[in-house]
Amino acid sequence: MILPALLPLILQQQDGEGGFFFPPVASDLAIASDSLFFTILYLSGFFFAIIVFTTLYFVWKYHHTKCPEPQPSPVHNNTIEIIWTVVPTILLAWIFFEGFEGFMARKTPPPDAYEIHAQGRKWSWNFTYPDGTESSVLHLPLGKAVRVNLASSDVLHSLFVPAFRVKMDVVPGRYEQLWFTPTMLGEFDVYCAEYCGTNHSAMTTTAVVHSQEDFDAWLSEAGDFMTKLSPIEAGERVFASKGCAACHSVAGVAGIGPALNGRFGQERKLSDGSSVTFDANYVRESLLDPAAKIADGFQPIMPTFQGQLDDDKMRVLVEYIKSLQ
């Protein structure tokens, strides 16, 4: 009784909040790709039902208790064999073509798409907007085609937003891209889908879809935080947008990297046995040449921020770290 009532819910393509199979449907590509998904579901469900039904029926009908002897029947039949070769071939060719069309649409972004640069690194994302604003959260305007250019600082990553049904590997040494048009306001999960080491499953962030006005407001506020905020608050922004928190706690818990609170001005023991004063120069050196001085008990795995942080940003970062207790 319950199952027939549930079946339409399971088998019908859902929009909005998604359904049994899918998370929210939040981009134009999601609608198209779900539609092909459900078409294949109906087709293969039909054939699977035939397979299950015929095997069960044959096992029941020709069970040895009913049929102690096999009955004469042909061992091959050209007509049948041609039919069940040709029909699946045609259906498969059609599915291929549908998938091909959708794929080509995904590979040809409109020339006027809004461009965002995404940098993947172990184990955080950083998004840069056309005016140079940076964010660790992916802010997007509703209803506007967005092209995300992808680059990696270290190993393979893959930018995956289930609600948009988009995914693309982030390959070191080259640029990749993906594009889509967000069609729904809200916050959606962003994952790394290509295995990248220890904190692979923590390399997540959020995509926030705003209305165009809210997006513009966010962008202008985020864009000039360096001038508007106090150095400590600005430093906190930089710390967040560069994804430092993925490895460095500010609450005293050692993670992939050492915790940073209450360390400023103190002596730090290094892995080669020497020690160094944790001061502004040490912070600066660690950002530009992370492998130079490794804190005792940690691996030399921090990526360099050479070229990604100007002097102003490094200055406010130092102020922020200094302020951490």
């Binding site: 198209a32 092909l36 599915i95 549908e98 998938g99 959708g102 794929f103 995904r106 995914k167």
Partner: peptide, 15 residues
């Protein structure tokens, strides 16, 4: 079939 089809594989790949 979902994985062989180019369009649907993009969402399903590596999941």
């Amino acid at each position: 079939l979902w994985l062989a089809a180019l369009e649907t594989d993009i969402h399903l790949h590596d999941t």
